[in-house]
């Protein structure tokens, strides 16, 4: 069996055990998350951001800006989309989705990433990738300064899938020219609700 052969070869080749470094010095750096840092990073990575007092304000803005007849899905509690995700059995049927509105768990100030996992994605993991436009709704209080704080907060991820999403999809594979809208969303708007902590 290759499994045993590989493990045996690795066991024979690996050196004496070296210690695992302690992450505490990195995890305990005195850093405080700040809304201004988060929004500055969002600007830098090409994501849009807006602030709202509550969900009703977001709903009103989305309703006003949505093109007529555009299909959109939402997994944000209290904000219904035009598409019933639970009624869709095959994720391929989401191919024409104009926008997806998703609840972010928290944002990371240093890189503009927002954590989303299956509790936020609903029944279809492909949702944040297949939609033409992405709207993330996040409480302005839910911020961490860096990824060390982010993983401390997450612990070991326990849903089947989760991701840090930082802005719209992009590529610079043609002559290093930055183009927004590669295979995933063409735009990413982060709504920050309420006042920061």
């Amino acid at each position: 069996m290759s499994r045993d052969r590989i493990l045996q070869a690795v066991r024979a080749a690996q050196p004496e055990a070296l210690p695992l470094p302690d992450l505490a010095p990195l995890q305990t750096l005195p850093k405080t998350p700040a809304l201004a840092d988060f929004t500055a990073t969002l600007d830098f990575i090409g994501a849009r951001w807006r602030r709202a007092a509550d969900l009703a304000e977001v709903a009103a803005a989305l309703a006003a800006e949505r093109p007529d007849g555009a299909a959109w899905a939402s997994t944000v509690p209290g904000l219904a989309g035009s598409v019933d995700l639970a009624a869709i059995a095959d994720p391929h049927d989401l191919g024409d989705l104009h926008a997806a509105v998703l609840p972010g768990r928290f944002g990371v100030c240093e890189n503009g990433a927002v954590w989303l996992d299956e509790t936020a994605l609903g029944p279809h993991r492909v949702l944040p990738f297949i939609a033409q436009h992405l709207v993330l709704v996040l409480s302005a209080r839910e911020l961490v300064a860096d990824l060390h704080q982010a993983y401390a907060r997450l612990g070991a991820p326990d849903t089947g899938f989760g991701l840090f999403l930082a802005g719209p999809s992009k590529t610079a594979d043609i002559e290093q020219c930055l183009v927004v809208g590669a295979h995933g969303a063409r735009s990413c708007t982060v709504w920050l609700l309420g006042e920061p902590a």
């Binding site: 990575i45 990371v108 890189n111 503009g112 899938f161 930082a166 802005g167 610079a172």
Partner: peptide, 20 residues
């Protein structure tokens, strides 16, 4: 990502744990 392309993060950092 900082070392690779000078971005603070890749756009998608996807954590796969279980099949859907």
């Amino acid at each position: 990502a900082r070392s690779a392309t000078g971005q603070p993060s890749t756009v998608f950092s996807s954590h796969f744990l279980k099949p859907r």
